[in-house]
């Protein structure tokens, strides 16, 4: 078995809030091998996005470290590409200009970067829309533009934080299928942060279940569904069985999250 390309070792993070210190992550460790698709799933407020920000170098950890090919990294790293949950395309740039953005920043000439960007525009199925502005596209198309932009920088590790969270279920499944196709074509190592069970099972080789606060990896579930995989896989018995297994672990954590949320809501205003 190959050595992991990405290692997260005992990463911890605390936040100081008006009501006290919140331990968001405690001793969280993850390993991802080259070409592997790993999903991290957990209830709301378990520190998934904090973990995403720490791995991507947008936030610092209070303990532990992140290593790429065995070397510790600090800050954003060219081998890690990030796709965000929120709308992140640049509205003043066309699709192809958005996708070519990392090449422009790297100083590549206009013609060369547009040629290269067009390859990724085609890869995500947006050819014919390359001269359109994000405002002229659907939410799914905008998210594909953001994905193409990240892939255009050719990162060795693709880090995605609930990229389809704002989309409807059907679009989400179809885009999931597209993502599998792309990752298989590029042999792309991917770490997906999600709270959606079906999405995690549909896309991944392994699903890491996180506990509620403080977040840590509670269980790893290997997904042994055939590849190449399409959205049809959701009709299989094994898919349902994986969902059941993961939900068994997740249910207790989600209940804790819900209880914490309700307690916070019950607290008198101003406290």
């Amino acid at each position: 078995m190959s050595a992991p390309i990405l290692r997260v070792e005992n990463v911890a993070k605390r936040f100081v809030t008006a009501t006290g210190t919140v331990e968001a992550l405690a001793e969280t460790s993850i390993e991802v091998r080259e070409g592997e698709f790993v999903a991290v799933i957990g209830p709301s407020g378990c520190g998934k996005s904090t973990l995403f920000n720490i791995i991507g170098g947008l936030d610092s950890a209070d303990g532990g470290r992140v290593l790429v090919e065995g070397k510790p990294i600090a800050g954003s790293h060219r081998d890690i590409g990030m796709v965000f949950q929120e709308e992140s395309t640049f509205p003043w740039r066309t699709v192809v200009e958005n996708v070519a953005f990392p090449l422009e920043v790297a100083g590549m000439g206009r013609r060369a970067r547009e040629e290269k960007a067009m390859r990724f525009v085609r890869l995500v199925g947006l050819d014919g829309f390359e001269r359109r502005y994000p405002a002229e596209l659907s939410g799914g198309m905008r998210q594909r533009t953001a994905l193409a932009r990240t892939l255009c920088a050719e990162p060795r590790i693709l880090l995605m934080d609930e990229p389809f969270a704002a989309l409807d279920e059907q679009t989400r499944m179809l885009l999931g299928e597209k993502l599998i196709e792309i990752c298989q074509a590029l042999k792309q190592t991917t770490l997906l942060i999600t709270h959606n069970l079906s999405e995690a099972v549909q896309l991944s080789d392994r699903v890491l279940v996180m506990s509620f606060r403080p977040g840590r990896i509670k269980r790893t579930v290997a997904i042994d569904l055939p590849r190449p995989r399409t959205s049809d896989v959701i009709a299989s018995e094994r898919f349902a069985s994986y969902l059941g297994t993961i939900w068994e672990d997740l249910k207790a954590e989600a209940a804790k999250g819900l209880a914490a949320l309700e307690t916070a809501r019950r607290a008198p205003a101003g406290r």
């Binding site: 170098g57 947008l58 954003s76 990030m82 992140s88 990392p102």
Partner: peptide, 8 residues
């Protein structure tokens, strides 16, 4: 954050 992710 996109800019920071691309190391601008």
């Amino acid at each position: 954050r996109v800019g920071r992710a691309f190391n601008l």
